[in-house]
């Protein structure tokens, strides 16, 4: 890691001003992504502004929904009794990510900005448009087994790595920020950007904008849910394909559906067409199979990741079948 300057702040105002004063500074929360990548010299910030002392650590749950402070640790959120009861999809997704040690460190705000696990992004000796804009993409013609099949561009095929974000996409979360220009409330689907011509820009956040909270609407019809994560080992591995799904079934008819995917998209991937294919249909395997096909429509595969198409279809069917079986 290169030399850094360090500043600890205890309130939003000083944090934002510190970043406004220094274009080569960034916020430091849990550090589990940032310090990892700074050690590799993939990221090289001159100043870290430690926001751990800012008291954004509340979890408030009511009939109007939930509001989660951005400094809440992943483990505290996953194990919060009311979150686990009302948003089990979120708890399940969080507990499937990383390790207990890392979940004790990683924050909600930081996890929204988790970086990709693309091997080339993490290796400064290779070409990567995300790390070094304009240098090319070593993954497109390289070894691309863990790469995306949805939302890719000719410049980047890296996946978004967070499990939490997949659940938040399905749950219609809103990201709350405070910045030089005041407050913003950003719908989750608009928070992350597709790589397009600028894979180095991953979200709509402006320099100095600080994530303060994530809010969730009431979980109406979302409690019958399942986060299914397919990976190379049983625990502590990134997703090859992950499915966050929720179903509201009345009689035998599907009245509401949510599906989001992880491990296959360049951002947390909400599968709206698949949801539409489910609503109003009988909750059976034929319906699930049709919806599963919708999730990967338009997938662009590479030699080593083509398996993710069938894997994702099957994962979607399994997740939906599990929910129906339990309801």
């Amino acid at each position: 890691m290169r030399e850094i300057r360090y500043l600890s702040v205890a309130a939003e105002g000083p944090a934002i001003r510190a970043l406004q004063a220094d274009t080569d500074a960034t916020y430091l929360a849990g550090g589990t992504s940032l310090l990892d990548l700074m050690k590799l010299e993939v990221l090289n910030f001159a100043q870290l502004v430690d926001v751990n002392a800012i008291p954004l650590t509340k979890i408030e749950v009511s009939n109007d929904g939930a509001r989660i402070g951005s400094m809440v640790r992943n483990s505290d959120l996953a194990l919060h009794p009311e979150i686990a009861a009302r948003y089990p999809l979120l708890s399940e997704a969080l507990l499937s990510g990383a390790s207990p040690q890392i979940r004790n460190m990683a924050t909600v705000g930081g996890n929204l900005l988790q970086r990709t696990r693309c091997y080339y992004y993490r290796d400064p000796s290779t070409a990567c448009n995300k790390r070094n804009p304009g240098s090319g993409c070593a993954a497109i013609d390289g070894y691309n087994r863990n790469h995306a099949i949805l939302g890719t561009s000719d410049h980047c095929i890296a996946t978004h790595a967070s499990d939490m974000c997949v659940a938040l996409a399905a749950l219609d979360a809103v990201v709350h920020t405070q910045g030089p220009g005041g407050e913003r409330h950003i719908p989750f689907a608009e928070f992350h950007r597709l790589p397009g011509d600028h894979p180095e820009i991953e979200s709509v956040l402006q320099h100095g904008e600080l994530i303060t909270a994530v809010s969730l609407p009431p979980p109406t019809g979302l409690r019958q849910s399942r986060y299914l994560k397919i990976r190379d080992r049983a625990s502590y591995a990134f997703a090859l394909s992950a499915v966050a799904a929720a179903l509201r079934i009345e009689g035998n008819l599907i009245r509401g559906a949510r599906i989001a995917l992880g491990g296959v998209g360049t951002k947390p991937w909400r599968a709206v067409e698949a949801e539409q294919a489910l609503v109003g249909k009988p909750a059976n395997r034929a319906t699930f199979t049709l919806a599963a096909a919708e999730t990967v429509r338009g997938a662009r595969t590479r030699p080593h990741n083509a398996f993710k198409v069938e894997l994702t279809r099957r994962a979607v069917v399994r997740a939906l079948s599990t929910i129906r079986g339990a309801s």
Partner: peptide
């Protein structure tokens, strides 16, 4: 419990 390598 935390990983002491990923924190300052």
């Amino acid at each position: 419990r935390i990983d002491s390598c990923l924190t300052l």
